[in-house]
């Protein structure tokens, strides 16, 4: 084959994109592509906060919308649906991810921890309690994502996972202020509670020693 298949496809895509750009001034010619009569679905098994769930989901459903719209676990927030803001951060098999960037069908058999799995108003996780104590939030919308990230950050440091600002990769890893801020930078807080969030996380880290 003279041209790799991906290049051919990309050319078609670019041509199509240019054509649709022009559609702002002229009517679309020809019929729109139709969708299938029903959306394809898949069975997905998830363990969420220790509870097993067997779901049949439209394959386009993100992990985020699965949690929010199907399991009604609305503690995980949708701030952008683009992977920019971090409000949808959850732990999947112990690793933090943006749930909006992941389809549920990619997580068959996975174990998910959401903010609801960390603690309840009457029995808060230490990180949740520290956020309340240090006023590490205002509107509360980014907060579950911040807390899930913070819990994961402490685990990452404990496991020696380096970050962009880690200096000496052979030295024991410590959660300096800049390490903490770098690792939390995927979680936007527009209310601007960063200074207090840093205090909350630092307190939990120091209490663990």
């Amino acid at each position: 084959m003279l041209l790799p298949e991906w290049l051919l496809n990309r050319r078609e895509f670019v041509a199509g994109a240019a054509a649709s750009g022009a559609l702002t001034t002229v009517p679309m010619v020809g019929p729109s592509p139709a969708l299938a009569e029903t959306a394809p679905t898949n069975a997905v098994r998830l363990d969420v906060n220790g509870e097993p769930h067997a779901l049949t989901l439209d394959t386009r459903t993100t992990l985020l919308d699965t949690l929010r719209e199907h399991l009604h676990l609305t503690g995980t927030k949708k701030g952008c649906d683009h992977g920019h803001c971090g409000a949808c951060t959850v732990l999947v098999n112990g690793t933090r991810i943006n749930a909006c960037l992941s389809l549920a069908v990619m997580h068959d058999g996975d174990s998910v921890t959401t903010i609801e799995g960390l603690g309840t108003p009457d029995d808060m996780h230490e990180m949740q309690a520290a956020f309340v104590k240090h006023d590490g939030f205002q509107c509360g919308y980014c907060t579950p994502g911040q807390i899930c990230s913070a819990v994961a950050v402490l685990a990452e440091v404990e496991q020696g996972v380096p970050s962009h600002v880690t200096g000496d990769l052979t030295a024991p890893m410590a959660l300096s202020n800049i390490e903490l801020r770098e690792r939390m930078s995927g979680n936007i807080c527009r209310c601007g509670a960063y200074s207090n969030i840093a205090d909350a996380i630092t307190e939990v880290a120091e209490a663990r020693g």
Partner: peptide, 9 residues
């Protein structure tokens, strides 16, 4: 309202 916000409730 802090405990509700930090627990996603």
């Amino acid at each position: 309202d802090g405990p509700r916000k930090v627990t996603g409730t």
